[in-house]
């Protein structure tokens, strides 16, 4: 890990501990020997209240590349996650996570997770990543909502 990457990730961890949005969690994983692996985090995104995503915390994994923060982290929900902007592998399609779009090194972990929370209930129909959820969101809203609610039960708090 480059020193820039390490110091930035340590700062991200510090800032997260100091102040993180309500209901979210994020922490680096532990290596098998018990040491901290700053390059790979697990986190939870709570669904916003009064939306079909509420009452659940959706797990994500965050993988930071060696050249972070020049390059964005790769963020994934579990494979098969039901959302129009999530690829079948679970990778999230969001402009602030794309190096060639809106990623900037100044974007913080807090901004990223808040962006993902916002995306949950406000999918971007112009960036479809999986066909079933995208199609249902556009053409069969009752089925879409039923499936999202079923998924919320799966990840209920």
């Amino acid at each position: 890990m480059s020193s820039l990457c390490k110091s930035r990730l340590q700062e991200e961890r510090k800032q997260w501990r100091k102040d993180h949005p309500f209901g979210f969690f994020a922490k680096p994983s532990k290596s098998p020997d018990g040491s901290l692996n700053l390059m790979y985090w697990t986190a939870g995104i709570p669904g916003k209240a009064s939306t079909i995503w509420e009452n659940a915390v959706y797990p994500i994994t965050i993988t930071f590349p060696e050249d972070y923060p020049s390059k964005p982290p790769k963020i994934k929900f579990p494979a098969g996650f039901y959302h129009p902007n999530v690829y079948p592998s679970g990778t999230i399609c969001l402009s602030i996570l794309n190096e060639e779009e809106d990623w900037r090194p100044a974007i913080t972990l807090k901004q990223i997770v808040l962006g993902i929370q916002e995306l949950l209930n406000n999918p971007n129909p112009d960036s479809p990543a999986q066909e079933p959820a995208w199609r249902a969101f556009g053409k069969d809203r009752p089925t879409y909502e039923k499936k999202v609610k079923e998924q919320a039960l799966k990840y209920s708090k």
Binding site: R17, F22, G23, F25, K27, K30, G34, S35
Partner: peptide
């Protein structure tokens, strides 16, 4: 409740950090 849960998670985080 959420406030308590959130603080407890911070305590859990502290325990994880000091365990090594």
């Amino acid at each position: 409740i959420q406030d308590f849960v959130s603080y407890r998670r911070d305590i859990g985080d502290f325990y994880e950090t000091i365990y090594p």
